[in-house]
């Protein structure tokens, strides 16, 4: 375990908690793609199947898995609940959240069957999960490119998400030099994810940060 990975995992968890805090405190879901949030739940559920095998890696690893699964499910619950509490915003979300996730699911499923560590259910599910995580933000990216509004996607959320991705690269470098081991599939998916995220951040910067700067009185 190295500081990059711990900080990366904590900022990943922080990004989910910030999103929950934003939804609950501002009581708005504007700009959030429910599809991306559902894909994240799928990422955690398919990746953490080893929780059921009780071959626990470590206490930290187990407790964080439980945190990730529960907090990401809670985000989706909050978004679903806004169907009643803020019906208009919920309808707007469904109207603008139009990315065809079928393509992502099919593509990542094929990738999982072709590229995995071992042709077992758990390993194919794990591989599906890392490929899925690398493209899960696409619905959110397309929604942002269309609407440009994003009250709930605050800079804190974007920063924490970016920090998580960024810190995983030095973590892999550190592990390669200290343990001489590297998970090639996680590395490949992680690089794709970092590229997709940087595209998302560029869009966010253009759409939200520069636009709000223009609106200054």
């Amino acid at each position: 375990m190295n500081p990059f990975r711990i900080l990366g995992d904590l900022s990943h968890l922080a990004s989910i908690l910030v999103l929950i805090f934003n939804i609950k405190s501002t009581n708005t879901i504007e700009g959030i793609s429910i599809k991306t949030q559902v894909l994240y739940v799928l990422v955690f559920l398919t990746r953490y199947l080893d929780l059921f095998s009780f071959r626990l890696v470590s206490f930290y690893n187990t407790i964080m898995k439980l945190f990730f699964i529960s907090s990401s499910i809670y985000v989706v619950v909050l978004l679903q609940r806004s169907k009643t509490t803020q019906a208009v915003a919920y309808k707007t979300m469904l109207l603008t959240d139009t990315f065809k996730v079928q393509y992502i699911l099919l593509g990542t499923l094929i990738a999982a069957f072709v590229i995995n560590h071992k042709f077992t259910f758990v390993e194919i599910a794990w591989s599906f999960s890392v490929w899925l995580e690398s493209v899960a933000i696409l619905p959110q990216l397309f929604m942002l490119s269309k609407s440009g509004k994003s009250k709930s996607l605050t800079v804190h959320y974007i920063f924490a998400l970016g920090l998580y991705r960024t810190l995983y690269i030095p973590n892999w470098i550190w592990r390669y030099h200290t343990e001489g081991v590297i998970d090639k599939i996680a590395l490949a998916a992680g690089i794709i994810q970092t590229l997709v995220y940087s595209d998302f951040f560029y869009l966010y910067y253009k759409k939200v940060i520069k636009r709000s700067a223009l609106n200054l009185p």
């Binding site: 690893n61 990730f68 998970d183």
Partner: peptide
């Protein structure tokens, strides 16, 4: 057989 892969990263 290939070693059992242990994923210790989240």
């Amino acid at each position: 057989i290939t070693k059992n892969v242990v994923h210790d990263e989240l």
